[in-house]
């Protein structure tokens, strides 16, 4: 993957819809790939930011730094917005 995008690793259509809405609002590209851990999604992302579901929560991981997720949220739209703003280098707003 070479186009600048945050990577969401899931096959959950409703999750994709909610996260995609957040990215559309922030005008940040999002790529959706097959389910994988958030860290693996982050490593695939040219922006170094990955999202993936774990149980009923969404995880945001970074390609650099510790393996564990940077943020975890049960509100996909909110965490999607945070990931998009992180990519756009804007203040993240409300946090989980």
């Amino acid at each position: 993957m070479s186009a600048p995008a945050v990577v969401l690793a899931t096959d959950d259509a409703e999750l994709v819809r909610l996260v995609r809405a957040a990215f559309e609002e922030e005008a940040v590209p999002l790529a959706v790939v097959a389910p994988a851990p958030a860290r693996a999604a982050a490593v695939r992302s040219p922006l170094g930011i990955g999202l993936a579901a774990r149980g009923d929560r969404l995880e945001l991981a970074l390609a650099t730094g510790p393996d564990e997720p940077w943020l975890v949220d049960d509100d996909p739209r909110r965490l999607g917005r945070i990931a998009a703003r992180l990519a756009a280098r804007r203040p993240l707003g409300e946090l989980p």
């Binding site: 970074l62 730094g65 940077w70 943020l71 992180l86 280098r89 993240l92 946090l95």
Partner: peptide
């Protein structure tokens, strides 16, 4: 705090963190 790992200082220099900065600090 440009990214969770990059700080830009008052002289324009950068510091690279080993652990990410808190989310509330990003872009602030």
């Amino acid at each position: 705090v440009e990214t969770p790992f990059i700080l830009r200082h008052e002289d324009g220099g950068r510091t690279f963190l080993e652990r990410p900065a808190p989310a509330r600090c990003v872009a602030h």
